[in-house]
Nucleic acid binder design. Sequence first.
DNA 1: GAATGTGTATTCAAGCACTA
DNA 2: TAGTGCTTGAATACACATTC
Length: 231
Amino acid sequence: RFAAQRIRGAIIDAVRAADWAPRSVRTLARRLDSVEQRLASSLGRIPSIGETAQELGVGVEEVRSLRERVFRSVVLAFEHVVTEDVDEELTLIDMLADDGREPDAELEDRELKSYLREAVAHLPERHRLIVVGYFIQERTSEELARFLGVTESRISQMRTEALAMLRRGIEAQYSHSQAEPEGLVERRRADYARRITETSSVTERIGERGDPDSDDRFCEEIDRLVDLVGS
DNA sequence: GAATGTGTATTCAAGCACTA
DNA sequence: TAGTGCTTGAATACACATTC
């Protein structure tokens, strides 16, 4: 359970780091959403991508691209000000209680979070979309299946695969195996673990300030993922 | 270059857990 | 109890690597 809590924090970091979307994308995304809702109510069904594109005055490919970009992005309001007092602007992060952990535990925590952040970031594209979409954005398998153009069962399988990859990727950071991997699969796994390691130095990993495990609702949503990865 | 082996991606069907 | 969401195993097709 202890490891699970720490991994949960790392996942939050990872998702947060993935929130790259510029304001222009957000604006267009809102417009897209609005147009889709309007079309849906007037047509009495979900509008096709072509209809949506026509309504927006853009190309079909552009709509597809936008949907994908928006889907990938995640916004977490950790910096959201939670007080009305101008002199005391407290953010969600500020409101989090000090857990009183020892310094060595804190350093270990930061390293683990960093590893997991990179592990999520280096997942194959579709697996990453599923992890973020399912565990963080609360999308159903059906939604994800529609989005990726596969069946729900395939989503389930890829979700399981993604969790296994995350677990192996993290474990590899602590195994220090010198053995040359044999076989294609093992080499790919080793390469995945290596990419996680190479993304940041030890100093960077333990030096970054880990964001607290804030937002109870959000934490509850990803608890299932944490339990699976951390067990 | 062809044959073979291995891994990956996918669908389908059956079944489980939960909820209204 | 029916509906929903999800998981799992079997089967298939395809891609890529290895061997001869």
